[in-house]
Amino acid sequence: MKDMFDFAGDDFAGDDLAGVPEDHPARLVAAFSLDAVDASEAAVVEDYLRLHPEALKELQSFREVAAWLGYSSAVAPPDLWERIEASLDDRAPSPGPELAKVLSMPAPKSPPPTGHQAASRWPSVRWWLASAAAVVIAVAASAVLLSPSAVSDPLQVAVEQLREDRDVRIASLVNAASPVAVEALIDLKGHGYLLAGDLPRLGRDQTYQLWGVIGEQVISLGVLGPTPSLETFTARADLRALAITIEPAGGVISDGNPDGAFVGEVN
């Protein structure tokens, strides 16, 4: 992808910035790491960093150095934690099942879940959604959702046959706040079938959207519309989980809405 700073091989993160124009954002990365640029320059640098991973890597190394610069033996006031902890209760968790468990990232052992602390948080999903934004377009070609109009009896026959297949991969997408479960079946070739007919009907200004967790990324697999039924999608072999979110009509490219999400691990 070409960006507004059109220089050949322009990932200037090495030693030498000779020949790089004075106003090129590569020259601002170090100052940016110390928050020593003004707001307009910061926006330019952020755009540049989005497209230049080496520059982003360099920024992180500078920030590590800066963190050392600011390191001290200061002790926070004794009552400060109590004030922070007191305000945690005001932040209600999002509903929904725990998608984080499908990730391999090791987590500390948890005590038996109690009350609202047992709920997982969608921000961890949004974390993946945000990081997946750059690959959504590339994956779109391999993750095509067919239109609802393609649904027909042969599809239902295929689903019934697939149920008998011992190689079928199945996901049950649930939401803790809803009695509805959406089943997904995937065959060996990656043909996926989503039985979404029980989902509540949405208004015309909203749509359901299907997402797939691949590795540690969450990728849009397509827009289902406000009244999905039996839908099809294409799944990669490394698909680990599915999620259905409610989005504005037309769907979103990334960063799905956590409220009311249905989530399930692919077994």
């Binding site: 600011g70 390191y71 001290s72 033996s73 200061a74 002790v75 926070a76 006031p77 400060l80 934690w81 922070i84 902890e85 945690l88 968790p93 725990e98 984080a100 990730l103 990232m105 987590a107 500390p108 948890s110 609202h116 602390q117 047992a118 709920a119 997982s120 948080r121 921000p123 961890s124 974390w127």
Partner: peptide, 24 residues
């Protein structure tokens, strides 16, 4: 990740590790 799972004690641990330098 534990913080993302609403574990106050995980935030407390992060605070224990880093609050002093952050405050300083």
């Amino acid at each position: 990740l534990a913080i993302a799972r609403y574990r106050n004690d995980a935030l407390a641990e992060a605070y224990r590790r880093h609050a002093g330098p952050v405050f300083g």
